[in-house]
Each structure stands twice: as structure tokens, then as C-alpha cells.
Simulated scan of single mutants.
Amino acid sequence: MPIVNVSLQVLPLVPEEKVYQVVDKVIKYIKSTGVNFMVGPMETTMEGEFEHLLEIVKEAQEICVKEGANRVISIVKIDYRSQGVTMEEKIKKYIDK
């Protein structure tokens, strides 16, 4: 299976003062999976095998619920190419070295 990119934005419906705490737990979980990822101001982009990334998206929803969200709205973007696609190839010209 080729390497793909999946961007995830979770919007847990919790009291406003808890939103960042819940999102931080999701990001901590993503980090624990070992996938290559990049946190942005509106979403986190991950790189890896498609099925694995979808499992991470699924678990992110469960984390939000465990943290008290009675509903979770998520926006997921997938960049899939049969030969694979990496985050680096898309942004390397913008990164100062």
C-alpha cells in the first residue's frame, strides 16, 4: 500500500476551556503511533499507510468522547496517489534549511 497523507481536524463539543486539552490528547496519541506528522494551526497532517491512518482517525474520535465530548465533528482530508505521496515533497520548497 502506498504512503498517503491524511489531515485531521477534530472539533470536540466540550466546554470551550477544555477544547485545547482534548485536542492535545489527540495529538499526543498521534505522536505515540510513530507516524510522521505535522501539527498546523487548524489541523494535523499525518503520513503513512492508508488503513493505519484511518484507524488513528477512528481512535481520535474515541479519545474525544472519553474526554467528555458528547459529539465530535471531524474534518478529514486525504491525499492519495497510487505511487504514494509524502508531506516533504509537497512543502520542501517552503522550508528554510
Rank of each mutant, 00 (worst) to 15 (best):
K92I: 08
I3S: 15
N70Q: 10
F37S: 02
R81V: 05
F50V: 12
V4F: 04
Y94V: 09
R71D: 10
G84V: 09
P2H: 11
E67F: 06
I56W: 02
V22N: 07
G84A: 11
V57Q: 04
L54W: 08
V39I: 12
T33P: 06
Q83F: 13
E51M: 14
N36R: 02
Y80P: 04
T44D: 03
R71K: 14
N5F: 10
T45R: 08
E89I: 07
F37E: 04
M87I: 15
H52C: 08
A69R: 02
M42Q: 01
S82F: 15
Y80C: 03
P15E: 14
M1E: 11
E67G: 08
G34T: 04
V14F: 05
V6D: 08
E17R: 10
V76Q: 00
E55P: 03
Y20R: 09
T45K: 00
Y80F: 12
G84Q: 12
P41C: 11
V14H: 02
V39A: 11
A69P: 09
T86W: 03
E88P: 03
M1D: 12
T44I: 05
L8I: 09
V85M: 02
M42R: 04
S82I: 15
C64P: 06
T33Y: 04
M87Y: 02
A60Q: 03
V65R: 05
I63L: 07
E89R: 06
V14Y: 01
C64N: 09
E49M: 06
Y80A: 12
G68Q: 02
Y94A: 14
V85A: 00
V35A: 00
Y29D: 00
D24V: 01
Y29T: 00
